[in-house]
Structures are given as structure tokens and as C-alpha cells.
Computed example of a mutant assay.
Amino acid sequence: MAETGTGLECIVKLGGSAVTDKNTLETPRLDAIRAAADIISQVRGRYIVVHGAGSFGHFQAREHGVVWGYRDKETAAEVQTVKLGFCRTRQSVTKLLHLITEEFVGRGIPAVGVSPLSSWVTDDASVVKADTDNIRDMLLEGFVPVMHGDAVLDRRRGCTILSGDTIIKHLCGVFHPPRVVFLTDVAGIYDRPPEQPAGAQLIPEIQVDQDGKLHVSIATSSQAHDVTGGIALKLKSAVDIVTESNGRTCVMVCGIQSGTAVRACVEGQLPKGTGTIVQLNMCKHPDEVT
């Protein structure tokens, strides 16, 4: 059931690759976390922050097959391996949550860490239960909920991985914010992986039809240990947010340490050529500036 009256202005996603070194186990990018804190400290109004796990959790989840759960395992030892992997994944992701909320609170932001495990449940990786009442109450009381990708219980698999992007998509269906801002380690969405030597080009705008069809060609890739699907799933989440809101919610993607990030989060503006906006085809974006 849709929530009303919260006045949620924006959901901010801190990408796992932006706030951690995704190739090195449990290595935060403290400069990026501080940049995020600086951005959020300038925000006025009601916001939700969701961060990816990056190198906190992905390695453990991949090693133990947490995303696929344990219900199909043939031996007790195999089940135990997945369950211990579940626990180790959670230990890791909550370390990063603590680092981020500690930095936020130190900047005077009333940030409250919220782990999905306690109140979110999936069925074959689809969200079937999510307690958003406590999120609503935090927003109304002036707190900033900080959520994260998490290992959660799953009715069919036993357990699985709930990505931060899936969390955001669900929250958008409940709170209907006018925009979602993805803060990443690159300037936006490119026509191919930006690390490729061929010369990737930033895509300033992605038009999406109501059926989810894109009007651009994008080649994607995902690192081997990324259990949440990499940029392909993130792009799908952005498309779903735009289409399911009938264009009422737009998605902005920009670099976490750019001046554009401040404008996107604080002012709701994305100057042309400084990031990527995903919007419904034939809908003029209200915050576009030249």
C-alpha cells in the first residue's frame, strides 16, 4: 500500500564500487564516504540513503553461494556452509554500515542504520515482506534512514542476497520520491564499460519506453565476485523505477566526488553532460538545466 504524507524528496544510492575498493576485501574508500557525508550534510528535507556492499560482503557471499540459498543442498555439511556464509556476509556488510553511519553522525547528520534482515523477506529473490512503517516513522521524526544490500531470509531458497538496488525499487513503489540519485565511482552510464580501452562514451540521457525498451545501445559487464548483477541489474532497476512510476520518478547517475553530485542530491538538478538521467520517453525532465 502506498505511503502518503512523508514528503520524501530523494533516495540516494551510494554505489559499492564508489565507497569501497571492490577488488580488495573489506577496503573502504574513506575519501568517497566523506564526500557522501558532505553531500548529505547539505540536504534539507527528507531523504533515504541506501549503500551497496562492494568489497564488504560480496566476496563472502560468492564463496559460499549465499544468493542461491541452502534448500537445494544434498548434505548437512553443504547446508551448514551456506548458513555460515550467510553469517559472514552479514558480519561484513554491517561493518560498512557502521563506517558510513559513523561518518554521517560525525558530520551532524541524524543517520540511523537499518538492516533489511530484521524485517524484509524474499521468495525466490523477490521481495514479499518489507516493513516500511519504521522507515516512514523515522522520516517523519527527522531521521535519515541508512539501508544497505543485505543477506536475508528467503522462503524458497532459505536465504539469498537482497541488493541495494532492489531495496530502492521497492521503496520507490511505497514512497514515490520525485528522484533517485545513484552516486557511483564514474561520471554516469557509458555505452560500454568505462575501463575498456576502446574509449567509452558517457550517455547523458536514456529514454525508456513504457515497456522498458531503451533507446540506446549499452554493453555491460560484471565483476566475477559481484553477486548483485553489476551494471546490468542496476540499469534494469533504474528502468523499472521510471516505468513503474509512469515517469513521476526520474533516476540520475553521477560521480560521488563531483560537483554534480551535490546539485543532483541537494537541488535536484543534473547539468547536461555531467551525468546520466534515465527518464520515460516523451517526458521532459523538469530539473534539466543547460
Rank of each mutant, 00 (worst) to 15 (best):
V253S: 03
D240P: 09
S245T: 15
C265M: 03
V262L: 08
P271Q: 12
N246A: 13
T243M: 02
C265S: 03
P271H: 11
R248F: 11
D240S: 05
T249G: 11
C265Q: 01
E244C: 08
V253W: 04
T249H: 07
L270Y: 08
K272S: 15
A264R: 10
T243A: 05
S245H: 06
G273M: 12
S258K: 07
I231C: 05
C254L: 13
S245C: 14
G273A: 13
V242I: 12
A232H: 09
C250P: 00
P271R: 15
K236S: 12
E267K: 12
T249M: 02
G259E: 02
I231E: 05
Q269L: 15
C265K: 10
G273T: 07
K272R: 06
V262R: 11
L235M: 15
G247S: 06
A238L: 04
S258R: 14
V253R: 02
A264K: 09
C250R: 07
S258H: 08
I256V: 15
P271E: 14
E267F: 10
R248N: 07
T243Y: 00
S237L: 03
S237R: 09
K272V: 11
K272T: 14
S258L: 05
V266R: 14
G268R: 06
V253H: 02
K236N: 08
I256P: 02
L235D: 00
